[in-house]
Every structure is written in structure tokens, then in C-alpha cells.
């Protein structure tokens, strides 16, 4: 009974934090107030100061995470609404997703090697631009560390969302297709959530890019490891 009460209070705490930070972000849309960043930081501060471990928190938190399943499925809805556009640009989107996945894996692999980071750690970072469930699978297949892969995915997701407005401005990426591919291909589902702030088209392109990247990533992952000789 006490466990149930604890789980519910963790769920409520997460909900309250989310709604507080997102209403704050609506009023002051600064990158640092992005709900995913400010919410995470606030949550960690609260858990650490209350002496609650992550495993304990997840007894409640897992119920929120479980809603990711139907939410990923729900991405079919914007796809369906944009189906005519997608049909027209299918090859461009597949090409873009391929470029994104290849760049993501090669760049982090080469940088990691240049910085002399442990090769098992680098391998865990290769799938960092893929959506979490895929990244875990790919890391396992490549004999990396699954939890480190999740950390890489998280940092990539949050940072990509923060840096995207500056990159788009500086490089003049102002089309929905360019933004959608960049966000979905780099920052997976978090990037897709950010793309929703631009327009529905960018949102749909981002979600299809994320899905295509998931497929491409699980195929070319082993190839990259072989190329980099890790």
C-alpha cells in the first residue's frame, strides 16, 4: 500500500514539474527553460535532495515512460495528414535520413578516437541519434553499454533541441524539410517534439525521419564499427 502511494506521488510530482516548467516555457521561450531540460534538472535536484534513488523513482516514473509506446504510434496521425507531401519527397527524406545517420555515427566515432576515449564507450555513443529503444538494441548488437547509450541519446536529444534554432538561423535552414530532417535525424523523438514548434509539416518529416533513421541505424551500425576498426 505504501509502495502504491509512493509511486503515485512520484507520478504526480513529475506531472506538476512538467506543467510548471512548460507553462513557464510558454511565457518565456528561452532554450534553457525547455521543459525537457529544466524539467529534468529540477527533477534530479528534488530527487537528490530527498535522497530518492533513480530506481526508486522509476517505480512511479515507469508508468509515464510506458505512455511513450502509444505516443510513438500516434505519430502515424501527422504522417497520415501529410501523406501527399511525403509521397512526393520520399526519396529526399530517405536520403536525408541516411546522411544524418551516417554523419552522426562517423563524427562521434572519429571525435572519440581523436580524444582517445575508450572504444567500448565510443561504440555505446554511435547510436546516439537514434530513438532510445533502437539505440539500446543497436548498442547491444555492437557490444557497447546499453545504459551509456541511453545517456548519449539523452544528451544528444536535449542539446540538439537547444542548439537547433541557432544552427537554423546561422546556416539559413528555413524550409520545413531541412528542419524536419535535421531535428528528427539528429535528436530523434525530442527533436520531433521540437519540430512541432515550427509547423505540422516539419513535425511529420521529423517523425518519419526518426523512423527511417531507426531502420538505417540498425543496419549501418556494424559497418561503422568495422570502418573505424574498433
Amino acid at each position: 500500500m505504501r509502495d502504491i502511494f509512493f509511486s503515485i506521488s512520484m507520478i504526480l510530482l513529475t506531472l506538476v514539474i512538467y506543467f510548471v516548467v512548460s507553462s513557464l516555457y510558454k511565457r518565456y521561450p528561452l532554450p534553457i527553460l525547455l521543459p525537457i531540460l529544466s524539467g529534468t534538472v529540477l527533477m534530479i535536484i528534488i530527487l537528490v535532495s530527498l535522497g530518492i534513488s533513480y530506481d526508486k523513482y522509476m517505480e512511479g516514473g515507469q508508468f509515464i515512460t510506458s505512455l511513450l509506446g502509444p505516443t510513438v504510434v500516434a505519430l502515424a496521425y501527422p504522417l497520415y495528414k501529410q501523406r501527399d507531401f511525403l509521397k512526393k519527397y520520399l526519396f529526399t527524406i530517405i536520403g536525408g535520413a541516411f546522411i544524418a545517420t551516417l554523419t552522426a555515427m562517423l563524427s562521434v566515432g572519429l571525435l572519440g578516437k581523436a580524444l582517445r576515449i575508450d572504444s567500448a564507450l565510443i561504440i555505446s555513443m554511435l547510436p546516439k541519434s537514434l530513438t532510445t529503444p533502437v539505440a539500446i538494441e543497436v548498442a547491444k548488437v555492437l557490444e557497447g553499454n546499453a545504459s551509456m547509450a541511453v545517456v548519449g541519446v539523452t544528451i544528444t536529444g536535449i542539446f540538439g533541441v537547444i542548439i537547433s534554432p541557432y544552427i537554423f538561423k546561422y546556416l539559413r535552414i528555413y524550409t520545413s524539410i531541412g528542419r524536419g530532417i535535421a531535428l528528427g535525424g539528429t535528436s530523434h523523438a525530442m527533436g520531433t517534439a521540437k519540430a512541432a514548434e515550427y509547423d505540422e509539416l516539419a513535425f511529420s518529416i521529423s517523425s518519419i525521419t526518426m523512423s527511417i533513421c531507426a531502420i538505417i541505424g540498425s543496419i549501418i551500425g556494424p559497418l561503422i564499427v568495422w570502418i573505424l576498426q574498433m
Partner: peptide, 19 residues
Amino acid sequence: LLSILMLFFIPATVGVMDY
């Protein structure tokens, strides 16, 4: 669900605290 998409990531991202 899509309007509160970001909420569903928070429990997973909080996992960074274990590192």
C-alpha cells in the same frame, strides 16, 4: 498524446543522475 510529448521523456532523461 502528441501535445504533451515532452512529458514522457522526463523519467528516462532523469536517468542521467545515475552517471
